[in-house]
């Protein structure tokens, strides 16, 4: 089974490479800091905005923001891994050799994204938990989150259900960095920023203007975050399953299209001789 082996080895390499710069537990802890801090920022913005505008503080709304902010960060952090895996691979000159071993580097890219999915699932959930406790103590309220085996299972399923969509986004970005090799280092900012605005992470997509809100509400990422909220906050199984189903459907569609784009970009890259081009 050549493909399973490749996928596994790539995922293994991803974990090694992402955590090897310091001891793995320390790296995991440090990787929790950023999502924790950004979750704190948006939660405090909510608290601050509400209390100083004479509005009533709504713990469910805080939960909405908290869950959304950790999960968009989770998606952003593994969706751009393909880009970085390619850019880094070219810099270290390993990329062309990876290309020569298999039919396509798509498998390697998937492996790297999956390893990052594992790391980021751990760190985002840790960030969510820590932010939950810190905020509860800090603001002296009970943030309304349902933590039961069933709700956690639903969350886990949602996390997995979002993989096709995130990988799809990853292949799009990867296609770009296969070809152009200059600006990929600032792509994560774009990915995070776009998800922040359009995936209903911090506010309902309905406040976006015109048709944008409709499109945004059917993005697989929006549906993923919604399904997670259904699991952790609202506990409505019917809504959860609907969001989940649509998320998978859209995700698989996105994945197929983007894989096609990626493979086309790879062929083009071979024609133009950029597969082994290093950054200037």
């Amino acid at each position: 089974m050549i493909s399973f082996r490749s996928l596994f080895a790539s995922a293994w390499m991803g974990i090694q490479h992402d955590l090897a710069w310091t001891s793995p537990p320390a790296a995991l802890v440090l990787r929790t800091v950023a999502p924790f801090a950004s979750a704190m920022t948006v939660s405090i913005i909510y608290w601050f905005g509400v209390t100083h505008s004479g509005l009533t503080f709504d713990p469910a709304r805080l939960a909405f923001i908290l869950v959304g902010s950790t999960l968009y960060a989770h998606v952003a952090s593994y969706a751009w891994v393909p880009t970085i895996a390619i850019a880094e691979g070219k810099n270290l000159s390993v990329f062309p050799h990876i290309y020569l071993t298999a039919r396509s580097t798509a498998l390697y890219v998937a492996g790297r994204a999956l390893s990052s999915f594992a790391i980021s699932s751990t760190t985002s959930l840790a960030a969510l938990a820590v932010a939950y406790y810190v905020l509860s103590g800090f603001l002296q309220t009970t943030i309304i989150l349902t933590i039961t085996p069933a709700s956690l299972l639903m969350l886990a399923v949602a996390l997995f259900a979002n993989i096709p969509a995130a990988l799809g986004l990853g292949y799009f970005l990867g296609a770009y960095s296969l070809y152009a090799s200059k600006f990929e280092w600032s792509l994560p900012g774009y990915v995070a920023g776009l998800l922040m605005v359009f995936s209903g992470a911090l506010f309902s997509t309905s406040i976006l203007p015109w048709g944008v809100s409709t499109v945004a509400s059917y993005l697989p990422f929006t549906l993923f975050i919604q399904a997670s909220r259904d699991a952790l906050i609202y506990g409505n199984l019917g809504d959860y399953l609907t969001s989940l189903g649509l998320c998978i459907l859209g995700g698989v569609g996105l994945l197929l299209v983007s894989l096609w784009v990626y493979l086309a970009a790879e062929r083009r890259a071979r024609r133009d001789g950029v597969l082994d081009r290093r950054l200037a």
């Binding site: 082996r5 090897a20 390993v94």
Partner: peptide
């Protein structure tokens, strides 16, 4: 292989680098 390039992941041992590629070859 290209002598000028010395492809490999920096923070991974030589052995693990070789193992990685062997796996990609199935």
């Amino acid at each position: 292989a290209s002598g000028a390039e010395k492809a490999g992941y920096d923070f991974i041992s030589a052995k693990r680098n070789l193992w990685f590629f062997s796996q990609l070859y199935g």
